[in-house]
């Protein structure tokens, strides 16, 4: 389990990185935290002839607010997100979900941009991004574009990024007031990729008895993170009540189409997606109320 031969390039600036990527996109692979790429190299499942190491690009690191949105630059480590008071305050769903990513030494090294670009359908960050209707900033020599999460994640390990484009930041828009979020997942062991995970976002009307908007974003139930649009639509205007969440669970089960593997069957995932949706919606609604009280 030793990596195959490759050339290694550590650019000093994003511009340098993009220049090389533009020239050699076919044979080059950007190296972010390496927590997914290096295992693939060690198993010789990935064979880039050139690695472009982004770890020296400090300009790609940092968390800030921009026009109310939380901006996390691509090379920001998971641990930095986990420790950030800004994230906890502004995007609690991200703060909650990030703790489910691997383990401490993985989060030390793993990056937000790397996780999003890798697009594992059972990974937490893509699910959070989908739940919050976030956007991915892609940068190449040709320019920069913002791609909504919905359009960015295409399929298993496949995104809308062109070979010469780098994920340079992700944006999590702010949520309306009286909104609560919750992240729940079921994994075989602590820190494993989720069998099923869900991010729920629930906004309540002024009297806190009615749902004005709800979102459900699932991981582990398809080739990409999946929004339960039918359930979301059905939740709008419904009362804050256990029956509402239960009905949403049923809708979720009808609209998702998970696959099975050695760890859990498709039927299990479908059912548990409903269970987690029900629980996450209730929790998010509760938090929406609590948040308003504070």
């Amino acid at each position: 389990m030793k990596p195959p031969r490759f050339r290694y390039y550590a650019p000093h600036s994003l511009e340098e990185a993009l220049a090389v990527l533009a020239e050699m996109a076919d044979e080059a692979k950007p190296l972010a935290g390496g927590q997914s790429l290096i295992p693939m190299l060690n198993m010789r499942l990935a064979r880039p002839s050139l690695l472009i190491d982004l770890n020296g690009l400090h300009e790609l690191s940092g968390i800030e607010l921009d026009n109310g949105a939380l901006v996390v630059r691509a090379m920001t480590r998971h641990r930095a997100v986990e420790r950030s008071p800004l994230v906890a305050e502004h995007t609690p769903l991200l703060a909650e979900a990030i703790r489910w990513v691997g383990h401490l030494p993985i989060r030390t090294r793993g990056t937000v941009g790397g996780s999003v670009a890798h697009a594992d359908p059972a990974a937490e960050l893509p699910g959070v991004l989908m739940a919050l209707d976030g956007t991915v900033q892609l940068t190449s020599r040709r320019g920069q574009r913002l791609v909504p999460a919905e359009d960015f994640f295409i399929d298993l390990l496949t995104t809308a990024a062109e070979p010469d484009e780098l994920v340079t930041e992700v944006r999590f828009p702010s949520l309306p007031s009286r909104t609560g979020t919750a992240w729940l997942e079921v994994a075989r062991r602590h820190g494993d990729y989720a069998l099923v995970g869900v991010g729920a976002v629930v906004s309540l009307a002024e009297d806190f008895t009615t749902v004005t908007e709800a979102r459900l974003s699932f991981i582990g139930v398809g080739g990409r993170p999946v929004r339960a649009r039918l359930a979301e639509a059905a939740l709008r205007g419904q009362p804050v009540a256990a029956e509402t969440w239960r009905a949403a669970a049923a809708t979720v089960r009808g609209e998702i189409d998970p696959a099975g593997d050695i760890h859990a069957s498709a039927e299990y995932r479908r059912y548990v997606a409903g269970v987690l949706a029900e629980r996450a919606l209730a929790l998010a609604a509760e938090r929406a109320r609590e948040g308003a009280r504070q």
Binding site: L31, Q35, I38, N42, L51, D53, I106
Partner: peptide
């Protein structure tokens, strides 16, 4: 050598990392 067992954990600038998921050049 695929980052799961943790036996190779070292501190990199004070933070724990998997040394099997880390190139020496880095």
């Amino acid at each position: 050598e695929h980052g799961v067992c943790g036996a190779c954990t070292v501190l990199f600038d004070g933070e724990p990392v998997r040394s099997c998921l880390f190139l020496a050049v880095q």
